[in-house]
Design a binder for these strands. Structure first.
Lengths: 354, 354
DNA sequence: ACCATTCAAACAATCGATTGCTTTATAGAA
DNA sequence: TTCTATAAAGCAATCGATTGTTTGAATGGT
């Protein structure tokens, strides 16, 4: 199989009797090239099927139209939607997106950072692995003034762009909602506490209780390492066994909340009457599980789009690598049947379906 | 912000008094370089923090360790899992993965193909957009002997690798299952018929009916353009209105099946007694919806891994671009409560939960 | 008619690694 | 000791585009 030879700017140059530099500038609509010349060159380029070699362009200009993205796992509803937003927005700006996943492991994250660095990406979007506490592996990007945007799971101690939601406020409001429904013994499924999102959600939970003068019962706060559905079922079983079992549950994600609901139903605990539940993320399952799960919705797609925006802006302003800018997005408490005790504000069925 | 200068093989050459070619070969463990020399060079490279510039390498060698992937949308459980499999397998082989989504539109697919071509990917994995019927935009890759693997939604008329499931058999077996449960009026939610997966699933459905001498009722076969949950609810409403309303439903995906279940419940139709339902994909919602949804499971992650495998094998064997190899994977009919009428084989609750 | 501007396009170096070919050094054979 | 085979390393071209600096031509003002 012989490969068809590529058409390069040199071929165009020969064909048109212009110099390669003129061709290059014409193709990029450079102002120092005459309008008719540009037209002519672009026309012939199309006819001959010229396609720019962006590898060569990257090498010479030391800029790359590729953005790297590192997340723990791409196949969660939240992350895949965020990445979808990144990709759509990146494409609009003429960028490609390279993905890589750490599977929650620090070592993988370091390896991935190296690989992305080697491919000379023009920007990096990161949501940290659960395990990660050190951020040294991101320094190399900063040293080359490659913008880094941390999104959702962000480090404490690294100067750069951040796109996050107000986890504290969300945790506070979710808990407050349960209190408003009359719950007094509210449990919490908390994730690893060195991860900002789980840490802040828990803080919000604690402060909401305190504000309402509800004593905090350490037995009701359970740390789930991975916040999986399975861990949620297990934790719920534990909660149902203790003397003073809870009448409310704020889970830091939907998966664990669904696990809890399934167990509660299995054990004959009425939801929301005997146990009001609220989750976090508004995963698709939340509106399908029965009773439908109250939750906090995350603007996943928008977070992705804004992350790209930060990277593009960075190149324009060239403020240098020491910028640190936080973009904080609003969340929304979505009330469904799993937490709605007061029948006078009951939700129409349709809303629960769609 | 001054960027730290990169360490290149030239810097190493100067430092170590070797020629750049020796450095290059040493770093790639080329056999024509002495063992001690390799050790020495690699040691110093590490100390000086040398990082290969894969852009430069790609340009020169005209090979790229980057694989492109084009799908309709990355944020579905099936696709995000498949991509996750691709990424994991690619990383193991030292490849990066660029993603791009068509949002089901042909024009976007063409644009994406151009962009990926321009970045000189080393291989391409594609799941077609619903709209796509022409495949001319993939020719450019073939002409340069860049391997293309079509996965799941594949074209009829393009010679290349395919990784698919046996949609016909799956559709047949899913329908057969409903027949075995005693259904005689079985409806089908079908997707766009020029898309192979939906076409074959429907064929399987039709043949299963025929085999059991059940007359096909055209009114019971509904085409859903996007197979969304919403379309599923709509279609179900329609089905409930016709005279001879169905006692079974095979939906070509889970989302539409869930929509149907929600409507059926709303209208007081008992599932599975009055309507047995089976979906396709085994999305997470399938096991959560009530009653839990029978479905056909798709080995998403494995499909991703095998796709990468095909690409790697291609480079090794260099059979040229005219190869056409089909990898067909097994599916599994998963029986849950939405279709299980016979109480003697009822499913334990635990299985439904986890 | 002359010099100063402005505009268009060309020249040539450069980005960092790869690789076919050549040279040099070393060892073994005769 | 001389010659050949082999291993180790160097030379220099190359991949395709970008870009600072020059050159050349055309325009305009006086």
């Amino acid at each position: 199989m012989k490969r068809k030879k590529e058409v390069t700017i040199y071929d165009l140059a020969k064909e048109l009797n212009y110099s390669p530099s003129t061709i290059s500038r014409a193709l990029n609509n450079h102002k120092s090239i005459g309008k008719k010349t540009i037209k002519e060159i672009q026309k012939v380029a199309n006819e001959l099927g010229y396609r720019p070699n962006s590898v060569a362009a990257s090498l010479r200009s030391n800029k790359s139209k590729t953005i790297g993205i590192m997340v723990a796992r791409i196949n969660s509803p939240f992350m895949s939607t965020l990445i979808s937003g990144v990709e759509d927005a990146a494409k609009k700006a003429g960028y490609n997106v390279i993905i890589s996943q750490s599977n929650e492991l620090y070592d993988n994250e370091v390896t991935n950072a190296k690989a992305l660095y080697d491919s000379r990406i023009g920007g990096l979007i990161v949501s940290l692995a659960m395990e990660t506490t050190s951020t040294d592996h991101f320094r190399q990007f900063q040293e080359k003034d490659i913008p880094i945007v941390f999104v959702d799971r962000v480090p404490k101690d690294f100067n750069s762009y951040r796109v996050i939601i107000d986890n504290y406020a969300a945790g506070f409001r979710a808990t407050k909602h349960l209190i408003d429904q009359g719950c007094t013994k509210i449990a919490h499924f908390a994730g690893s506490q060195h991860v900002n999102v789980y840490n802040m959600r828990k803080k919000g939970y604690l402060d909401a209780l305190e504000e309402s003068n509800i004593k905090i019962d350490p037995e009701l706060v359970i740390n789930l390492p991975t916040m999986s559905l399975e861990e949620g079922t297990e934790a719920m079983r534990k909660l149902l066994k203790i003397d003073n079992s809870p009448d409310g549950l704020f889970s830091a994600n939907d998966a664990a909340a669904v696990g809890a609901i399934l167990v509660a139903k299995e054990e004959g605990v009425k939801i929301p009457e005997e146990l009001a539940v609220i989750g976090f993320n508004d995963d698709p399952v939340a509106s399908i599980v029965e009773p439908s799960l109250s939750t906090v919705s995350h603007p996943a797609r928008k977070m992705g789009e804004l992350s790209i925006q930060r990277i593009l802006d960075h190149s324009k302003t060239s403020l240098g690598s020491s910028v640190s800018e936080i973009t904080m997005l609003d969340t929304e408490v979505i009330i469904r049947n799993s937490s709605l005790k007061k029948t006078n504000e009951s939700i129409p069925v349709k809303k629960a379906i769609v």
